[in-house]
Write a protein that binds this DNA or RNA. Structure first.
Lengths: 232, 232, 232, 232
DNA sequence: CATGAATGAGGGTTCATTCAT
DNA sequence: CATGAATGAACCCTCATTCAT
C-alpha cells in the first residue's frame, strides 16, 4: 500500500518545480531578446517583461547579464549537441560526420529563425565554452586527419575553416533567407576546404538527411513559438 | 615684398587642418577603443580621453556612436582596399586574386594586432557597407565563376565561404597568434571551398607575396603605434 | 498506566520551546550582524543565514528591521542590567554605585568584543529605551545629588556626563583595545565630572571589583562565541 | 594700460565658478539631509532635489555616498576649526583652551540647530578625520598634561573624556533644547574630569565669552537658513 | 570651433516584505 | 509554525547628449 508522500516532500517538490518553470521562462525570453537586440545590449527589463516575472525574480536566478548569457548559451549548445550528435556519430567516416553535423545545425537554424538569429548575434565567442565546439567539432576533425580523410590541418585552422562559414551562414539564414541548396553549398565548401575530393563532397552535401525536429518543449521550439507570438 | 597667401586664407586653412587633425585623433582613438571594448560598449568617454579633446568637440565631428563606428569602419575598409586592391588586380586569374586578397588582408592583421582586434570585434556586419566587401570580393567571385575557375556558387554562398573563414582568422590572430602558415592554410581552404584544384590552391596559397606595409601615417600604423604606448 | 502529560500538552510545549530557540537564534545573529554592519545597514539576509532559518520564519518573529533592533537592544539592556545592577545596589554611596556600574559595564564590553562592537555601533539612542539608561543611571545620579555626593547637576546634564564617556569608551574598546587602566580612567573622569573629590574618585575607580561573568548561555557569551567561529 | 582678460581665461573662470557653486549647493543640501535621515540612509535623491541639480551632476562632483559624507564632514570640521581655533589659541592656559573650545562649539551648535543635528547624527566617527579632532583637541590635551594643568591622562583617555560629553551634548541640543547653563555644565564637567580644580573649572565654564558668529555665507549659516525654509 | 558643466533617461542591483505550500 | 519563491519599490550609477561660454 503506497504511503502518500509527506507534506514536506510535496511542498519542497512543488517549490522546486515552480522555480524550474520560472528559470526556463527566463532563459527562453532571454534568447529571444538576445536575438533581437544583441548580446551586449541592455536586456534585463525586456527579458523580465517577456518572461512575465518581477525584477527581483531575475536576480533570484541569475547574477546578472553575463550569467544569463552564459546560461542561455550553455543551454543552447547542450540542446543542439543533444539533437545533432546522435546522428553524427552514426557515421564512421569523418567527412560524413562533418557534413551531417553542419547540415543538421543549419537545418535547425532554418527551421527556427529565432534560434538562428540568436546564434548570429552571439557569434562564435558565446558558444566557445559549449561542448559542441570544444568537443564534437575537434573530435571529428581529428578523426578525419587521423584517417587521412582530411588534409593535415592543425586543429585551430580546421576549426576556423568549419566554424567560420557556419556562423556566416547563421547570419544569412537569420537575415536574408538564402535559396534552397544554400546549406548544402556551405557543407560542400567546408568539406572541400578540408581536402575532401569533390565527388565525395558533392555527394555528402546532398545525401538524404532524415529530418531533425526539436521536441515541442525544447528550448528551440519554445523560443521559436514565442518569437512568432510576441510583438517585436 | 610678396605675401604668398592672404591672412584670411591662412586662417581658413589652419582651421581646416586643425579640424582634420582632431577628426583623425578621434577616429584613431575610437578604433582602439572598439578593439578593446567591443562595438556595443560605451565608448565616448574613453575615446575623447584618448584623443585628448573635450566632450563637446566629439559632437562637433560625429552625430553619435553609430556615426563614429560607421566612420571608423569606412576609414578602415577604404584604407584596406587602397592597400590591397592594387596588388589584387595585378592578377587576371580569379583564384590568384582571391588568394592574394585574403593573404594580404591577413598579413596586415598580423602586422597590426590592434587592427585585427578591431575587425574581430566589429565582425562582418560593421564592414558590410565598405567597398571592400560590397565590390571587391563579389567582383572577383563573379570573375572566377564566369571564367570557370570556381564552382558555380551563387553570390551569397561564395561570399560566406570567403568571409566566414577570414573573420574567424581575425579572431585567431587577435587572440591566439596562430603558428606561421596559418594564413596560408586559410587561403588554401577558401580556394578549395570555391572549387579550385588542390595543386593550384596549394601553390597560390604559398606563392611569394611582396610584403605589404601600411604607410607610417596610415590609420592602421598609427592605431597600432598608440595601442603599444597607451595603457589598457 | 499513568501518562504524565497529555500529547497535546507535549506538542504545545515542544512547539513553544522550538519557537523560543528560533527566536534566540535570530536575536543572537542579529546582534552580531548589527555589530559588524551597523544598525542602519541591510541586515535581514545575513541574519537569517547566520541563524539558519528561512526568510519567512523571520517575519513570524519580528515585524521588521526596527522591531528586530528593538528586541536586540532590549535584550542587551535587560541582560546588562541583570548582571550589573545587583552589584551596584550593594553600595549605598552614589559615587560607589556609579563607579561600580561604569566599571562593570566596561569590563563586560572588554570581555565580549562582539558586544562592545554592538554597543558602539548602535550608540546611545538604541538603548535609550532600556531600563538601564532610563532607570538605573538616573536613579543613582539623583541619589548622589540628594545626598550631596555629586554637584547639583540637572538630570540631563548628569546623564550626558556619564553616558558620553561610556559610549566613547565602547568605541575605544571595540576598535583599539586601549591599555589596562583605561576603564578606571573613564570611571575616575566621570566621578570627577560629577564633582566627587579626587581622592575618592581615585579610590573608587581602582577599588577591587569582583569579576563579572556573563553566564555561558547568556546573550553576551553566546554572541561572543559565535563571533569567534563565524566567518566575517 | 590693463589688457582685457582673454576670452579663454574668462570662459575657464566662469566654468570654474559655476562648478564651485554647484558643489557648495550639494554639500549644503547633503548636510541637511544627513541631519534629517542619518548618515547611512539613502540620500542622493533627496540631496539632488534640495540642491536643484540633476542626478548626473551629483556624480560629476562625488563618487558616491561615502565621498559625499567625507566632503561634508571635512567641510564642517574645517569651518568649525576656522571659527573656533583663533579664539582658543588666544589662551595660554590649557584649561582655558579646552573650556573655550568646548563652549564655542556648543554655542555654534545651539545657534545652528541643523548643524547640531548633523553632528549628532554622524557621531564622532565621521569627523574622525578632521583637523579639529586629530590636531586641535590632542594638542590642547597634551599642553595641559605637559604643564601640569591636567591629570596625567593618556591621549586616548583624555580624548574620550572630552569628545564623549560633547557629542552627547550635540544630541541634547539637537533634540531637546536643554536649559541655559547646560553648555557650561558640560564644559565644567569636562574640566573636572581632566583634573582641573573645581574653582577654576567653575570660573572657566562661566567666564564671559565673546559671541561667535558664523559668517552669513558660511556653510553653517547657509545650511541653517535652508533648514528653516525647506519643507521636512 | 573647442570647451566642459550640467542634464536625465535608462540601465543595473538590492532587499524588505508577502504568500502559497 | 517553518519554508523559500516571488515580488517590486527604491536605490545606485552610467553615459550619450546638450548648451552656455
Amino acid at each position: 500500500m503506497p504511503r502518500p508522500t509527506r507534506p514536506a516532500d510535496h511542498r519542497a517538490r512543488a517549490g522546486r518545480e515552480r522555480r524550474e518553470r520560472t528559470r526556463r521562462a527566463l532563459i527562453e525570453s532571454a534568447m529571444l531578446v538576445f536575438a533581437r537586440r544583441g548580446v551586449e545590449a541592455s536586456v534585463i527589463d525586456e527579458v523580465i517583461e517577456l518572461a512575465g516575472v518581477a525584477r527581483g525574480t531575475f536576480y533570484n536566478h541569475f547574477r546578472g547579464n553575463d550569467d544569463l548569457l552564459a546560461a542561455v548559451a550553455a543551454e543552447a549548445g547542450d540542446q543542439l549537441l543533444a539533437i545533432v550528435n546522435p546522428r553524427v556519430i552514426e557515421h564512421e567516416d569523418a567527412a560524413a560526420r562533418v557534413a551531417t553535423g553542419v547540415r543538421l545545425v543549419l537545418a535547425l537554424a532554418r527551421a527556427h529563425p529565432a534560434f538562428a538569429a540568436f546564434l548570429a548575434r552571439v557569434g562564435p565567442r558565446a558558444v566557445a565554452g559549449s561542448n559542441l565546439t570544444t568537443r564534437a567539432v575537434p573530435r571529428d576533425l581529428a578523426l578525419g586527419v587521423r584517417t587521412g580523410r582530411f588534409l593535415r590541418v592543425p586543429p585551430r585552422l580546421g576549426f576556423d575553416l568549419v566554424i567560420g562559414p557556419v556562423f556566416a551562414a547563421f547570419q544569412a539564414i537569420a537575415l536574408s533567407s538564402p535559396p534552397a541548396g544554400y546549406e548544402a553549398g556551405i557543407a560542400r565548401g567546408i568539406l572541400l576546404a578540408l581536402g575532401v575530393p569533390r565527388a565525395d563532397a558533392e555527394r555528402l552535401a546532398r545525401m538524404r538527411l532524415p529530418p531533425v525536429t526539436a521536441g515541442a518543449d525544447s528550448l528551440l521550439a519554445r523560443v521559436d513559438a514565442r518569437a512568432r507570438t510576441s510583438p517585436r
